[in-house]
Each structure stands twice: as C-alpha cells, then as structure tokens.
Simulated scan of single mutants.
Amino acid sequence: MITYEWLYVLAGIFFAIWSLLSLRDRLFGNAAFWGLLAASFFFGSNLSDFANGVLVLAMVAIAGTGALKRSDPETTSIEERRDYSKMLGNKLFVPALIVPITAVAGTLLYNYTPLSETGLFEARRETLILFGVGVLVALVVAMAWLRPPALAPAEEGRRLLDSIGWAAILPQMLAALGAVFALAGVGEIIGGVAGDIIPDGSVFLTVVVFALGMALFTMIMGNAFAAFPVMAAAIGIPLLVETYDGNPAVIGAVGMLAGFCGTLMTPMAANFNIVPAALLELKDQNGVIRQQIGTAIPLWLCNVAIIYVGAFLLWN
C-alpha cells in the first residue's frame, strides 16, 4: 500500500538534493537549512515531539541569523528562456497542467472503479498521493520533451526555493502553531469572551464574529490553517454547530474561505504577499496586498452571507 509517508520521503529526497547542491557551492547555511528540513521529512514521524521541536528551532536559528543566501546556479539565461517562450508558447504550461489533471482524474478513476478494491492507496489520502504522482509524471514528461541537462530540475528548483527562502515553509510552521494554540486552550478562552458579548439566539451576529475572527486571526498568524483550529474551538463548533445546529460542512468550508480573505490582506502571509513582491522586484513591498484588498473585503461579505444562508436558513 502506498501511504502518506511516501510523500514525505519524496519531499525529503528533493530537499536533500537541494542541500547537497548548496553544500557543493559552499552555501553552508542553505545546506544546513534544507538538510534539516529533509531530515524532518525522512525521520519526523519516528522522532519525538521534542526532537522535532529541536529541528525546527535549529532551522529558525539558521534563518534568523541571515545564513540563508540566494543561490545563482548555472541554468538557462534570460535570453534562452525568452527563446523557449517564443518557440513553445502556451505549450510550456503542459507539465504544470499534468499535475492537477493526474490528481483529479486519478482520484475519480480510483474511487469510482474496481481499482478502489485493490487497496493500492491509503484510505482518504488518494488525492494527495496522486498529486505527488502527478509531479513525477510532469517531471518525466518535461525531461523527455525539452531534454534539459540532468540536473536542470534540481538547479531550477533550488534557484526558486532559495529566492523564496525560509518563507517557503511558513505555511507548515503556522499551521502547527494553530494546533499548539488550540491545545493550549486559546479557543476556549476566546469562545468564553464571545459568549459573553454575543446576545443569546443571535445566529447572524455569531456568524459575523466567527468569520471576522477567522479573517483577523489569519492576518495575525499568516495562515488560515493556523486560525481555523482556534476559531473552530471558540465559536464554530460550540456555538454555530452545537448550539444553533448549523451545517458543519458549510461552516467549516466557507469559514476557511473567510480566513483566506485575511490572507489576502496580511504581510504575515509572506509566501503569498511578500515573496511575490520580492521576486517581481516591486518598489512597494506591500503592493500585492494593496491590489488584493478590493477583492478581499467584498469576498468576506459574501462568505458571511453564504454561511448564514447555507448553514442555517437552508439547512434548518
């Protein structure tokens, strides 16, 4: 059976390759950082919480001391990329499209045919595993089609990853922080305060507070996945689901979208908002955020309406 652990090993292999390439180029900080991340993917499930925590603190120390540097591997020049673009046009997007097509088509084929009886993939992990399969298929297709040097995928991946730096793993770190906050009882504390403020029986106001909390906590923590455990424990489950009998699927799914509205408006979501500005060399570091605010606020209002109508008016 192919399990979720196989994806960890696959990711660990790529990070290990980038670490070795960085070591070859004497970028010792980069080599240590990506090497530690590779170790966490390879061995994290078998290490204690304390050992995993030490790995994370070591990575934070490397990034915090400025030891991560932008690499400049010998890849294609700007002129060569422009020539490829003119020659191949939109066909260059074919490898990128292979990944989602493999994940979606593979999941449907596996779940709705006799293939599901084979037990090939771990239950409820089929889509994620097939997403990883899609990455490998796209890599093989691109190599066979474009015939680049053998190390081109690794070098290009390292160039992009080093340009992003520590922000590349920010979503995982912030999601873990949200779980820590939930276990520490932050959600219950917020829920108690909200219960004292919100009038009894005010479903709509509770929805507004829940959606607003998702957006604000996402802006503070930089990731809706980090905000969700806190707000679900505070308001989503105890009030909207258990007290007012709301549809948990709508509350959970659209509540996440309300959090993503906060993602559009915060520099804490560095991988979404600050990194693109750096890669595009924008003069205004917050230029991406300024462009997104006009979308985020109306979208948040729509999410409030969807939760109220879909989870309560049409559900009960």
Results as ranks from 00 to 15, higher is better:
Y308H: 11
P276D: 03
V94G: 00
G187V: 07
G53F: 13
G106Y: 00
A167P: 04
G53E: 12
P248Y: 07
E5Y: 15
A51E: 09
V140Y: 09
A176K: 14
A211L: 11
D83L: 12
F41Q: 05
G192D: 04
W300F: 14
W166Q: 13
Q285S: 11
G213E: 06
L299I: 08
K283I: 02
K91E: 02
L264A: 11
R290Y: 10
T107L: 06
L257C: 14
A67M: 13
A16H: 08
A39D: 05
V99D: 12
D196G: 15
I235L: 13
I78S: 09
V140H: 06
S48A: 12
C261A: 14
L279S: 07
A51L: 15
L212E: 08
I101S: 12
V241L: 06
R70S: 07
P267Q: 05
S40Q: 10
V54W: 06
L170D: 11
P267W: 00
E188F: 10
R70Q: 12
P73S: 10
G252N: 11
E126G: 01
L10T: 07
C302S: 13
V141I: 11
G35V: 15
L136Q: 03
V141G: 08
L280G: 06
L282R: 14
L47R: 02
E281V: 03
V275H: 09
I78L: 11
S85W: 15
L10E: 10
A167M: 07
L10V: 05
V94A: 07
E242A: 11
A63Q: 07
L177A: 13
A11E: 09
V94W: 08
R125H: 09
P153R: 03
Q292A: 11
W6V: 12
A249T: 13
E122A: 02
W6E: 00
M1W: 02
A233H: 01
L92E: 04
T75L: 11
F312D: 04
K69C: 04
A305Q: 07
L161K: 04
L88I: 04
M219I: 10
L27H: 10
